[in-house]
Simulated assay, not measured.
Amino acid sequence: MKIDEAVKFINGTNTAFAEVEDGDLIIFEHNRVSDDWFLRFPTKAKTWRSIIDDEDCLTDVEPQDLARVMDVIQRLLDT
């Protein structure tokens, strides 16, 4: 999976939004407040250890959308 495909897939969910900024894939709640991201994925990451999370910003993310985001991240790590 490519980064642009991941962004498109995540942005197709109801409660998550993704964008690429400074070499990182940043994932927000859909109502995107500037610094309220819940996952920051360096596009060069090879393992989950490189991913930064902030679960305080997950309050409005539906479980099925979070599962989709996690699946996309795993696909990116696998490629």
Rank of each mutant, 00 (worst) to 15 (best):
N11K: 04
N11W: 07
G12I: 11
G12W: 13
T13W: 08
T13E: 04
N14M: 09
N14L: 10
N14F: 04
N14W: 02
N14D: 14
T15K: 06
T15C: 07
A16L: 03
A16T: 10
A16D: 07
F17E: 09
F17D: 10
F17Y: 13
F17C: 11
F17S: 09
F17N: 07
F17G: 01
A18P: 09
A18S: 08
A18K: 15
A18R: 11
E19G: 10
E19I: 12
E21A: 14
D22I: 15
G23I: 13
G23Q: 13
D24I: 09
D24M: 10
D24R: 13
D24W: 08
L25G: 00
L25F: 03
L25A: 00
L25W: 05
I26H: 02
I26R: 11
I26G: 03
I26N: 07
I27H: 11
I27G: 10
I27E: 07
F28G: 00
F28R: 05
F28I: 02
E29P: 10
H30A: 14
H30R: 14
H30S: 15
H30E: 15
N31F: 15
R32H: 06
R32V: 05
R32A: 02
R32N: 05
R32D: 02
V33H: 13
V33E: 14
V33G: 04
S34F: 11
S34V: 06
S34D: 07
S34C: 00
D35Y: 03
D36H: 14
D36E: 15
W37C: 06
W37T: 03
W37E: 10
W37Y: 12
W37G: 01
W37P: 01
F38Q: 03
F38G: 05
L39R: 02
L39D: 00
R40P: 03
R40E: 09
F41A: 00
P42M: 12
P42T: 15
P42Y: 06
T43G: 02
T43E: 11
T43Y: 05
K44M: 09
K44Q: 14
K44L: 09
A45D: 09
A45M: 04
A45G: 06
A45E: 08
A45L: 11
K46Q: 08
K46D: 03
T47E: 06
T47L: 07
T47H: 10
R49L: 13
R49M: 07
R49Q: 12
R49N: 12
S50N: 15
S50E: 15
I51P: 00
I51H: 02
I51L: 09
I51D: 01
I52T: 15
I52W: 01
